[in-house]
Amino acid sequence: MAVSKRLQAIVSLIEGHCLADIGCDHGYVIMEALRQKRIQKAYACDVAPRPLDNAKRNIHLHHLEEQVTCLLMDGIKELPSDVDSIVIAGMGASLMIDILEQGKSHIKKGIHFYFCPHKDASLLREYVSKQGFRIEQECVVEEDGHFYPIMKLVYTNTPYSLTQSEILYGVSCRKDTTYSLFLQKEQEKWKQIVAHMPKHKRTEANQRLQILENMRRQS
């Protein structure tokens, strides 16, 4: 089973007894987490029958039926009570926020979440901080020319505030070569944006560049 760098990075952050993978696709995150003994059991969850069938086949091939239950379900509203860790990956931040918003009355304190949004990560950070999900750790993974933020959070039900730099570029982010490259690419992108903007409209973009310059000094 070939596991991508992105999925390996998600698994490296997982801790707990029972994991639910929301939008499980082929079930690779669950299988790798079990292989590394980071969890004892899991629920592979998807709203669509076809990806859930893919997960079922892989689970059967690896003889994991006793540890993994497949659930055809929408979001996190109907998760079993023994779940203490939840992965939501492979989608944009807006859909992740919708899933959390629809299921927030069912979320217990102390549950860990692992997010990997494909886009709009800043929207997700702003939402979770206001809703009482404490971001414990982040890292950035580069795969096929795209940078993916990966977040580990715990639900505390205590809202808090983030700085603008944390909203845009991460909280307690692992400062490795990939993160440095990500900041460099972001700075290059925003320099090009500023260069093509009228001077009277550059204020916000220049603020973004200043944030990036400060963060690159610290990384």
Results as ranks from 00 to 15, higher is better:
M1D: 12
M1N: 11
M1L: 10
S4Y: 03
S4F: 01
K5P: 06
S12Q: 10
L13I: 07
G16N: 13
L19G: 08
G23T: 04
D25H: 09
G27M: 07
G27R: 09
Y28Q: 06
I30C: 10
E32D: 09
E32H: 14
A33D: 10
R35L: 11
R35K: 13
Q36I: 02
Q36C: 10
K37L: 05
K37P: 00
K37H: 10
Q40S: 02
C45S: 14
V47S: 13
V47W: 04
V47T: 06
P51R: 04
D53K: 14
A55C: 11
A55Q: 06
A55G: 08
K56R: 13
N58D: 03
I59S: 06
H62G: 02
H62E: 08
V68G: 09
L71A: 02
L72H: 01
D74Q: 15
D74A: 05
I76Y: 07
E78T: 12
E78D: 12
V87S: 09
I88W: 11
A89G: 06
G90I: 00
S94E: 05
L95P: 00
I97V: 11
I99A: 10
L100H: 04
L100E: 00
Q102R: 15
K104S: 09
H106M: 09
K109L: 10
F115I: 01
P117E: 12
K119Q: 15
D120I: 00
D120R: 11
A121E: 07
S122Q: 07
L123F: 04
L123W: 02
L123I: 00
L124C: 08
V128P: 09
V128T: 08
G132S: 06
R134G: 06
I135L: 14
Q137A: 08
E138R: 14
V140M: 11
E142H: 00
E142T: 01
D144L: 09
G145V: 01
G145A: 02
H146S: 08
F147W: 02
F147R: 12
Y148G: 04
M151D: 05
M151H: 04
K152M: 13
K152V: 05
K152S: 15
V154N: 03
T158F: 09
P159I: 01
L162R: 08
T163Y: 07
Q164F: 03
Q164V: 09
L168A: 15
Y169D: 12
V171A: 03
R174K: 15
K175F: 02
K175G: 11
K175Y: 01
D176P: 02
T177N: 13
T178E: 12
S180H: 02
L181N: 13
L181M: 15
L181F: 00
L183I: 03
L183F: 03
K185H: 12
E186G: 02
E188N: 02
K189D: 13
W190Q: 04
K191L: 15
K191P: 00
Q192S: 07
I193E: 11
P198N: 08
P198S: 11
H200I: 08
R202M: 15
T203D: 05
A205I: 00
Q207S: 15
I211C: 07
E213P: 01
M215Q: 12
M215C: 07
R216Q: 11
